[in-house]
Computed example of a mutant assay.
Amino acid sequence: MSLLIRSQQSRLGRAVDVLLTLSAWAAMAYLLVQGVASLLASGRHGPRPALVAEIMPTLDTLLIYLLVALGLGTILLAWAKYNERRAGWYQRRSRMPDIAEETLAANFQVSLAILDCLQRQQVLILHNGEDGALAAIELPGTALRLPALASDELLESLRSEEAPSAEPLAG
């Protein structure tokens, strides 16, 4: 089990991430080298102060960084534990139950015969009305355009015809 969640990312997104990460590492290295160089240079130009006096300002800064890091780590750990507990309240990865054809037809506001037509075709053009409901079904490559509320008799007559425009409806 992997604790990382990996998502698809475009090449541009990956390039930006890599560029920002490399620039952050370069900035950190630059600041580290500058700090060490300034410490070494201060020892060459005069009497060398006590080592403890030299390190104390650096330790104060490092202590502040450590406290901020501990605070952020505590917040992230608390958030992770909260999400772990919250996820236990419900099953997130259970399979959705199958939708009955009657329910699907009711959701599309079409008859079962029209739903059967929709499921058989590989390519359809669906036209919606002003209210968003399905208004018409068009079969590309044919001159056939059915109203969404077509009767079962109309569909049966189209299936029984020998016309080429009705071939896509044949099962």
Rank of each mutant, 00 (worst) to 15 (best):
1 M>Q: 01
51 L>G: 03
154 L>E: 13
77 L>C: 02
126 L>I: 13
14 R>S: 03
63 L>N: 13
88 G>F: 01
134 L>C: 09
155 L>N: 09
50 A>V: 08
57 P>W: 04
31 L>V: 07
79 W>Q: 03
156 E>N: 13
103 T>E: 15
38 S>H: 13
97 P>A: 14
52 V>H: 07
142 T>C: 07
98 D>G: 12
62 L>M: 14
8 Q>C: 06
47 P>I: 05
148 A>C: 08
129 G>L: 07
111 S>M: 08
30 Y>P: 00
107 N>W: 11
168 P>M: 03
168 P>W: 03
123 V>Q: 15
114 I>K: 03
138 E>R: 14
57 P>A: 06
15 A>T: 06
59 L>R: 12
22 L>C: 04
132 G>I: 02
99 I>K: 10
58 T>P: 00
166 A>D: 04
81 K>R: 12
135 A>E: 12
170 A>G: 09
57 P>N: 05
32 L>Y: 09
72 L>R: 05
87 A>T: 02
135 A>Q: 15
137 I>W: 04
88 G>D: 04
31 L>C: 11
9 Q>D: 05
96 M>Y: 11
123 V>R: 15
99 I>P: 05
41 A>F: 11
117 C>V: 15
3 L>N: 02
48 R>Q: 14
127 H>W: 05
52 V>Q: 11
62 L>R: 11
19 L>E: 08
84 E>I: 00
21 T>E: 10
20 L>E: 13
25 W>P: 00
114 I>N: 02
101 E>T: 10
78 A>I: 01
169 L>E: 08
46 G>Q: 04
165 S>R: 10
16 V>A: 02
141 G>S: 06
102 E>N: 10
98 D>C: 06
18 V>A: 10
161 E>P: 00
31 L>A: 14
21 T>C: 02
74 T>R: 01
24 A>L: 06
10 S>G: 06
48 R>H: 10
14 R>D: 06
135 A>P: 01
99 I>Y: 05
79 W>D: 04
106 A>H: 09
76 L>Y: 03
115 L>Q: 06
128 N>T: 13
40 L>G: 12
144 L>S: 08
75 I>S: 00
81 K>S: 06
158 L>P: 02
90 Y>T: 12
170 A>S: 11
45 H>M: 07
97 P>G: 09
52 V>D: 13
86 R>F: 03
164 P>C: 01
44 R>S: 08
97 P>R: 11
149 L>M: 11
72 L>S: 10
61 T>N: 10
134 L>R: 09
101 E>H: 14
67 L>A: 12
171 G>H: 12
116 D>I: 01
46 G>T: 01
30 Y>V: 07
61 T>S: 12
100 A>N: 09
92 R>V: 03
19 L>V: 04
159 R>G: 06
52 V>A: 15
61 T>V: 13
74 T>W: 01
14 R>F: 06
108 F>C: 12
21 T>M: 02
14 R>K: 08
41 A>N: 10
33 V>K: 07
95 R>A: 15
117 C>M: 10
16 V>C: 01
76 L>V: 01
28 M>K: 08
46 G>R: 03
